[in-house]
Design a binder for these strands. Structure first.
Lengths: 123, 123
DNA sequence: GAATTAACTCTACAAATGTAGAATAAAAAA
DNA sequence: TTTTTTATTCTACATTTGTAGAGTTAATTC
């Protein structure tokens, strides 16, 4: 099951903080902050969906993510690729490189990354 | 406003076919095909959202997309980048290159694409 | 220890989404 | 021209999502 947008935001915070109490999560929100109960509802739903768990500390809980950001993200990108590019990652890559405006420096970096990948493949 | 998942599927078909009558759209679906009324509802919603328009032909309509796939897609990717990578396209690119398993050939292609982009930037 | 606060659960409710039946109208087939 | 098919609109309804009040309980502060 997927996270909704509002839930994804909570995840973002959790990923950044690694673990957090309700209070920390609320702080992480910009004004206007949502009601505590709103965040509580979202957390509960995320727990049901097995995206979040917690450790009990007194009467409150320290929440933490159950899925890695990279894994979650992978699924997203793969979904996009499947959806929009008939499963062709290279088509996606090409599109991405032309449409996103990466700076010269970023492009050079990317090239390096690709070279590393290529080395790995060739082994 | 954004398209929902089901609506996105209709869009996919429309993008592929460029324009289509109800019948064509239904054919494009794999089994089990949705009810005609379902697709009709989706189309109507998409028309409201200004993603689709149509030309009338007799008693039926030829639907066509109002937004280009590439534009729609850009927004998606940019959303992803913003959401997950603090707006850093290069971070995304790096992630993408390492996590998606592109073949050797695809990586080479991608390198070429990057070179072309680099040439453009240098001018 | 009484009052305040923080975190949680329960309940609720409006909007969006996925899905489709019933009714209608027009076109095509018999 | 009667029947059948097709496309559309209207209505409907369950589920999911966004948001939060009310109430409860435990911890903290006076």
């Amino acid at each position: 099951m997927q996270l909704s947008n509002a839930e994804e935001q909570v995840m973002e915070h959790l990923w950044k903080m690694e673990k957090a109490f309700m209070k920390d999560l609320l702080e992480a929100y910009p004004e206007p902050k949502p009601a505590t109960t709103t965040v509580a509802t979202l957390l509960k739903r995320m727990i049901d969906k097995k995206f979040v768990a917690y450790n009990e500390f007194g009467n409150s809980r320290e929440y933490y993510p159950l899925v890695k950001k990279s894994d979650y993200f992978s699924k997203h990108v793969n979904g996009l690729i499947k959806n929009f590019f008939d499963n062709s990652a290279s088509q996606f890559a090409s599109f991405f490189t032309t449409e996103t405006n990466l700076s010269e420096k970023e492009l050079e970096e990317l090239k390096k990354i690709i070279d590393v990948q290529l080395q790995k493949k060739k082994k």
